[in-house]
């Protein structure tokens, strides 16, 4: 069965769904549209479900999981963010942060849909289960770190609004500072552990598969730097008992490095580590 028309249809549909979803959450946050409330969560669940269907169909159609290029990884990252956010919304019933988180998913998915290329000829090692674990752990880590940064950003917005006694829209709609800090911290810990797992698997497995493996590979070095940065930040929080604004600033700085790693290294520095 030729599944490529379905892939193409979903490729166009998914970013449109995220655009609609982001608009709905944005209207809810910035305006007052009580009529949209009942459509919000079902729309989120439908979008996430269709995104999962898209990933499965794409895997079947091209006979490999969508992890062979940066733009394939971006769609998986968008799905991870949306799934992570869905879990948070269902658990906490707090939907005020939806616009900010889902906007990230929309941005990643749009970039992916525009630039992704259909690939059938992939190296044999891409069928490896170990690689699956490696990439999954890395993506989970990056997703969690993205969520952590998004909550850190929201924390800082609310912090400055409260400190400056403005008490505007951000003050009205966002959850409290402590909850945002907790969400950010938990996502950060999860991301740190996941990235750690990805690094360990990679360092053990990659030299066996790639004859041109180098410990100075930009992606490996970049990920290690990020991981060490998070290790320092989490350690400082734990040992020195840091709380509040300072830790959120560190979280955002660390995410800046992540963003650099995701873009500059993947797009501009050649490496054995690109899997294509």
């Amino acid at each position: 069965m030729n599944m490529q028309p379905v892939v193409l249809f979903l490729l166009i549909l998914i970013p449109l769904l995220y655009a609609g979803l982001t608009t709905v959450y944005g209207l809810q946050f910035f305006g007052d549209f009580p009529g949209l409330t009942r459509f919000r969560t079902p729309a989120l669940l439908i979008t996430v479900a269709l995104h999962i269907v898209y990933l499965v169909v794409r895997t079947i159609a091209f006979d490999h999981p969508p992890i062979t290029s940066v733009f394939e990884i971006m769609t998986v990252l968008a799905a991870s963010i949306a799934i992570g956010y869905t879990y948070i919304e269902v658990r906490t019933r707090a939907s005020a942060t939806g616009f900010f988180i889902l906007f990230l998913a929309f941005a990643f998915q749009t970039a992916s849909s525009v630039f992704i290329r259909d690939r059938f000829d992939i190296p044999g090692y891409l069928h490896s289960v170990v690689l699956g674990f490696h990439v999954s752990a890395a993506l989970l880590g990056y997703t969690a770190i993205s969520l952590s940064a998004a909550y850190g950003f929201l924390y800082l917005m609310l912090y400055h609004e409260i400190k400056s006694s403005r008490f505007g829209l951000i003050y009205n709609r966002l959850p409290n500072l402590e909850m945002l800090e907790t969400m950010s911290h938990r996502a950060e810990v999860f991301g740190f552990v996941s990235l750690g797992v990805a690094i360990v698997i990679g360092v053990i497995w990659l030299p066996r598969v790639f004859h041109n493996f180098s410990y100075w590979d930009p992606k490996l070095v970049g990920t290690l730097v990020i991981w060490c940065l998070y290790a320092v930040a989490l350690g400082a929080k734990r040992q020195l008992g840091w709380q509040g604004r300072k830790t959120m600033v560190i979280t955002l700085v660390a995410f800046g490095f992540v963003f650099l790693s995701m873009t500059v290294i993947n797009l501009y520095l050649s490496s054995f580590h690109s899997f294509h």
């Binding site: 609310l158 409260i162 003050y171 959850p175 409290n176 500072l177 402590e178 909850m179 907790t182």
Partner: peptide, 9 residues
């Protein structure tokens, strides 16, 4: 109300 915007519980 302000305390509830700073602290969760």
């Amino acid at each position: 109300e302000l305390a509830s915007k700073i602290y969760a519980d």
